[in-house]
Amino acid sequence: MRLSGCHPLPAVPQVVLAYQKSPNPILIMSALYLLILASLLVALGFLGAFIWSVRKGHYDDDYTPSVRILLDDSEKTNTI
């Protein structure tokens, strides 16, 4: 069971390699800043979507839509 000897080591991600080699970590850090801001923006987007849905009254009635979706809305029916 010498697994470590049999298998090649997984490839080291480029970013980590760059971090280990680069003399100037500022470059990687700026990518981190960008990612943090991007993640915050995405989260803000979801918050905005939530507020929008509350504003539109999606939370005022949590029962009727569940019934409405099951009712057929065919324009003409022949079953009498």
């Binding site: 943090i36 989260a43 509350v54 504003r55 939370y59």
Partner: peptide, 22 residues
């Protein structure tokens, strides 16, 4: 009133999650 409460919960939850992550 219900809507105001939901806004507050939404914003507090958003802030809580993100502050914890950061």
């Amino acid at each position: 009133w219900n809507r105001t409460r939901l806004y507050k919960i939404g914003i507090a939850g958003f802030a809580f999650g993100n502050i914890m992550m950061l």
